[in-house]
Design a protein around this nucleic acid. Structure first.
Ligand SMILES: [Mn+2]
Ligand SMILES: [Mn+2]
Ligand SMILES: [Mn+2]
Ligand SMILES: [Mn+2]
Lengths: 232, 232
DNA sequence: ATATATTTTTAGGGTAATCTAAATTTTTTA
DNA sequence: TAAAAAATTTAGATTACCCTAAAAATATAT
């Protein structure tokens, strides 16, 4: 438990790695609608205990980064949102760098980007962005916020929403776990490939799909639920 | 003041940013001959107080990274040397990346590399090295250790050792301060340029030099002392 | 509408890295 | 070589982040 400290609200003070990770996680858990995020959800995502989360929430609130009323969950303030989006921008740009320039697989880059995202320097981010050719999406299909902090989530479908004989474009993944991404690699399911749903098993919702009009395979509901797609 | 803890010696445990910075500084201050480094010298270089240095030295000694006997100064162990060289390798490779790929000036990259050098991941370093074409020297002319940890310092001359009418190749700088590097930029003194010493003022050792057989300028002893060169 | 279960916060600590002030050791000077 | 100066270490705190256990608040179920 920590004491309260003075309030301060400033655009460009230093936030620690830990604070930045919290902000990013709050952003992600509160979703498009900016719902309240619970202490327990944060404890789970940060792999810490609820008591530690409470301490950190107090600190983030003192810094003006989150709205926090005891027992009521938290939301990002405008300032907190801005900081979170900056970190997300850095994370995704570094992932593009790692995959496009260094030749990493999309299953290998998350942990490294998790560190690189905290390197401070506005000019570094902007030069990296230019070097990469201002990419709009990261290797997992996630949108990259622009330099002004605009982040527009495209509204993709989930493969489970696609009907039989429809053809869709593979646009992204919901699960970023290496094991899942490696499974997709082995199945030749890559960003931009065309997926045609041939059959859906009524019993377990597993599906028979064709990739790029070529090879076919069965995928489980669990897989379908994690594929973001778009109608052609 | 901190308590002593158990000893452990292992090749690939995690060292903190702070520990890595200490090792790098000890390496640099102890020079080619591996001389003992004093507590005060470290306090100066790390911008901390001597008491803080003593605490850290104890920790580094416990981890088997330095040889430390109270009041006697410190030297790196073989393990500490290995870790220090890995950090130096990362620092210099990232500097090459920042200058060659992102278009930073050689005066702008030090602080950013100071952060990037602590990103863990052997494979990242090796892929970065390959992407950069296995550079041998960083933007300041400092040699980059190879992937096995071999670091060979070329034995350059300092411009003060060069006699009148000798022509030398500019190979590196001793001072890395942005102000000095910017001065060199303005004077068109770049890595690889040819410097011919035309005159040396006996009184203050300032010199009249010609760059690339073209323009001439006066440089102070302070500048000469910080230029590493090589006879043609 | 209670009683029970769940969630969240508070209390009290721990470690890493820092600090100031005071003690101790080594070096320098007279 | 003893006194003074300088360097170094120890003592005792502080801050950031994290922990367990206990208390308090909220949500759920009878
Ligand atoms: Mn992170
Ligand atoms: Mn991603
Ligand atoms: Mn550093
Ligand atoms: Mn350098």
């Amino acid at each position: 438990m920590r004491k309260a400290t003075g309030k301060m609200v400033s655009t460009d003070m230093q936030n620690s790695f830990t604070e930045e990770n919290y902000l990013k996680i709050i952003h992600s858990l509160s979703g498009r609608e900016g719902l309240e995020v619970s202490t327990n959800a944060l404890a789970e995502s940060t792999a810490t205990r609820a008591a530690s989360v409470t301490d950190m929430l107090r600190k983030l609130a003192d810094k003006g980064l989150i709205h926090y009323k005891k027992y009521q969950g938290v939301r990002l303030t405008d300032l907190g949102e801005k900081v979170a989006i900056k970190v997300i921008r850095k994370h995704r740009l570094w992932e593009v760098f790692l995959v496009e320039k260094l030749g990493f697989g999309w299953d290998e880059v998350h942990d490294i980007a998790e560190e690189l995202e905290h390197i401070p320097s506005e000019v570094l981010v902007e030069k990296l962005d230019a070097f990469l050719g201002h990419p709009r999406f990261d290797p997992h299909g996630d949108p990259i916020p622009d330099s002004k902090g605009n982040l527009t989530e495209p509204d993709y479908l989930i493969l489970t929403d696609v009907h039989i004989s429809e053809k869709v474009l593979m646009m992204g993944v919901l699960d970023h776990a290496p094991a899942f991404l490696q499974y997709l690699d082995r199945s030749n399911i890559t960003l931009g490939c065309i997926i045609e749903v041939k059959e859906i098993n009524d019993y377990d919702k597993s599906a028979f799909v064709q990739i790029n009009g070529a090879h076919t395979l069965f995928i489980s509901l669990e897989v379908s639920k994690n594929l973001l797609v778009q109608r052609l």
